[in-house]
Design a protein around this nucleic acid. Sequence first.
DNA 1: CCATTGACTTAAG
DNA 2: CCTTAAGCCAATG
Length: 111
Amino acid sequence: MKNDASFFDLVYDVVRLIPSGRVSSYGAIAKYLGTAKSARMVGWAMNAARALPDVPAHRVVNRVGLLSGKNHFAHPKRMQELLEQEGVEIKEDRVLHFTKIFWDPEKELSL
DNA sequence: CCATTGACTTAAG
DNA sequence: CCTTAAGCCAATG
């Protein structure tokens, strides 16, 4: 059996766990995976995640709640719309109440 | 193999 | 939270 637990697969696994109406950050996910300094790699993984329907990449934003990845979606507005559909308020491409709806895998999963 | 790039983060101002 | 600078690591050319 080949456990091809690639970095990407691990990222997908965490991102899939993000509940609706919540958002997480690349750094938080990276840290959870043990590669805290490779937050960029999480973004890179997300780039590949576009092909995967199970990976809600729109719930992953940067550390200040900025929709840094919106430009990589089908349409730049897509990410904001998806988040708003889940009850996340967006203003100027930024998540409102970011600290409140922020979902940290290290905290939420280790409780 | 070396250079560039990127959906980031942190530190300092 | 804004800007500038530097660090980080994998993929891509």
